[in-house]
Amino acid sequence: MTALILIDVQRGFDEPEFWGPRNNPGAEANMKALLDAWQDRRLPVVLVHHDSLKPGSPLRPGQPGHDFKPELDGARPDLVFGKKVNSAFIGDIDLDAWLKARGIGSFVIAGIQTNFCCETTARMGGNLGYDVTFALDATYTFDLPGLDGEVVTADELYRVTAANLANQFATVKSTKDILSGLG
């Protein structure tokens, strides 16, 4: 059985003045397509939210940005929990224990941000022995300043994350390919 783990699909990421330019404007539609497919098949769904401790962050608990995006309206998750760091394996719930208790040895990751919480969770999942599928086009990220002062674009970060994961930690697929594999 394969679980779907949706990471940090929160309204606070819709604030470009805080985050800067993003990539992959179709990500939310792909997240929704995955969620619908998992729920239609009664497969396990896990929703993770980031509980930022940083002052001024739109992802702080109690702020409107902490809420899930509308694409998750109507979700019937099997598990919902928060985390304060990048990995969903280090959160308010022991995700590893939860998955193992249910005999779940594989999962698909989608959400925000590609190169932070999604990638970190995929890496840890791979290291823990899970069969991880990374739904690249159901993620997005933002431009970042490089150490040399140049901007590293969201598209560059996205591409590098895919290469990092595919060569060590996960199978990187499109939403279309994941859905066609569900039958």
Rank of each mutant, 00 (worst) to 15 (best):
G56I: 04
L47F: 10
E28Y: 06
Q63C: 12
D67A: 14
P21F: 00
R42V: 07
L79D: 09
K32L: 06
D96H: 14
P70E: 14
G91C: 12
A29G: 13
D67S: 12
S52K: 01
D40R: 11
A88Y: 04
P77I: 02
D94F: 12
D36P: 04
A27T: 00
L43N: 07
W38Y: 14
W19S: 03
G20D: 08
P77V: 02
L35I: 10
P58H: 12
W38A: 04
R22W: 00
W38G: 01
G26R: 13
L53R: 10
V80R: 15
A88T: 09
S52I: 03
L59V: 02
L79Y: 08
P55Q: 13
R41N: 04
E28G: 01
G91V: 12
V80Y: 05
G26D: 15
V45Q: 12
R22P: 00
D14G: 12
A29Y: 03
A33Q: 05
A33E: 08
Q39R: 11
G56F: 02
A75Y: 15
F18L: 01
G62I: 00
E17F: 00
W19A: 03
L95E: 05
L53W: 06
D14Q: 13
L72Y: 13
P64H: 07
G20A: 10
G91W: 10
D40T: 07
R11E: 15
F89E: 07
G26F: 00
A88C: 15
D51L: 11
K84W: 01
G65D: 01
K83S: 06
L53Y: 05
W19Q: 04
G91S: 11
H66Y: 15
A37L: 02
H50A: 05
K32G: 03
V85G: 06
D40W: 00
N86V: 04
V85Y: 09
D73C: 07
A75F: 13
D14M: 10
F81N: 09
L47W: 07
G26C: 10
V46Y: 15
F89W: 11
E17D: 14
P64E: 09
G74Y: 12
P70D: 14
D40I: 00
D92P: 03
D92G: 06
A88F: 04
L79K: 08
R42C: 03
F89K: 07
H49N: 10
P16C: 12
P55C: 03
D96S: 05
V45D: 13
D73E: 15
R41V: 08
P58W: 10
R41H: 08
L95N: 07
E17I: 03
D73Q: 14
S57L: 05
S57E: 05
H49R: 15
L34E: 06
V80P: 01
A27E: 00
G65H: 06
V80D: 08
E28K: 02
D14C: 07
A97C: 04
K84C: 09
E28S: 08
L43D: 08
S52C: 04
L35P: 08
F89R: 09
N24G: 01
K69P: 02
P21S: 14
R22F: 01
Q39P: 07
D92F: 12
A88S: 15
E15D: 14
D92H: 13
G20W: 07
F68T: 05
P16D: 10
A88I: 11
D94W: 12
D14K: 08
K69F: 05
L47D: 03
V45H: 11
A37N: 04
